[in-house]
Design a protein around this nucleic acid. Sequence first.
DNA 1: GTCTATAGCCAGATAGAC
DNA 2: GTCTATCTGGCTATAGAC
Lengths: 204, 204
Amino acid sequence: MRKAKDKNTEELILNAAKSIFQSKGMDGARMQEIADKAGINKAMLHYYYRSKQLLFESVFKNAFSLLAPQLNAVLNDESTIEDKVRNFTSNYIAFIVKHPYLPNFIIQELNRNPEFIIKLKDNPSFLNLDKFKLQVEQEIEKGIIKPISAEQLFINVMALNIFPFVAKPLLMAFTDTDDNAYSQLIEDRKTEVADFIINSIKLK
Amino acid sequence: MRKAKDKNTEELILNAAKSIFQSKGMDGARMQEIADKAGINKAMLHYYYRSKQLLFESVFKNAFSLLAPQLNAVLNDESTIEDKVRNFTSNYIAFIVKHPYLPNFIIQELNRNPEFIIKLKDNPSFLNLDKFKLQVEQEIEKGIIKPISAEQLFINVMALNIFPFVAKPLLMAFTDTDDNAYSQLIEDRKTEVADFIINSIKLK
DNA sequence: GTCTATAGCCAGATAGAC
DNA sequence: GTCTATCTGGCTATAGAC
């Protein structure tokens, strides 16, 4: 039975770096703070990852590789659009509740450095919407859903699911809710969002 | 007839700071870069705004005061929910197209420093959802729209309108579009988003 | 592999001439 | 009000002992 203490140093550093980078961003993070969190000294960070930039990239790729596969799995399975929307909404919200800093971290750092995504797109496991597009067109033709562009539908699903996490402080202020009430709002969205989307696109 | 050159130094600095802070964030911005952009030297920044922190706060409050009044105006006018959704969507997207860095800046900096919003909430012109809530309840009762919580509806409207700007690099990659194609997607959303929402909540 | 000490640089802030 | 020059502190990164 392994304890956390058995983790090797490299992993300790990566976990500490994840936590600091995701809450403060590349520019706001301090190597000293990462070292403190990992319980080792600054020199070790450079010994294992050479520079702040390389340590950051390790954390970023690691974070991104958590998000994309889940999206792909849902988009490319054999279920109907309606089921895809329901599964995605419920699963993705549950996932992000466990990793609340993740979407904001990804979005923020991609805005800071948009060229960065070019590297990611080379990866063969990167998101591919082709199958989803085809399916949307087919269901429209069959009269199952109303006409909508697959891209717009995809953006809507992403927006409705992810935005409440990214803009949490702003939305808490606007809706005048505290942390508990806001968590409840989010919890409700696991089904609310799917209903909202399905209501909009489904033909009676 | 005033030329840009007639602007006083304080304003020059604020505009330069706006541009740099909004694209790089508080931590990524450099006073030297702001001075260069304003065409003056670093000492002047401190002469007028004392510290980086205070200069940043001026920019932030300035940016925030652009967003909130527009929201309030739409939410508190006398039109129906449907018209509110249509007006808001079309106007807000047009507004953000002109200030593309604004939403991301606000969201990012509020995440970095969530206590900051407490100061903003004290402002009497801060967003108030009471009237909107009442109106949603009334239209539900009258059978004009389907039952939905006003907060969830509000979050949905915000998410669908703002997220495409905040997550632009990510969504461009996922939908495999270039800058022009993405601008077109956004342009289409001025009506698409309103239709999407109305379809979902309106009773036949 | 892990540590302490420090090099070297860069950013925010200030002093002081004009 | 505006400038140049400089201080001061903090940060990344490395040297070198163990």
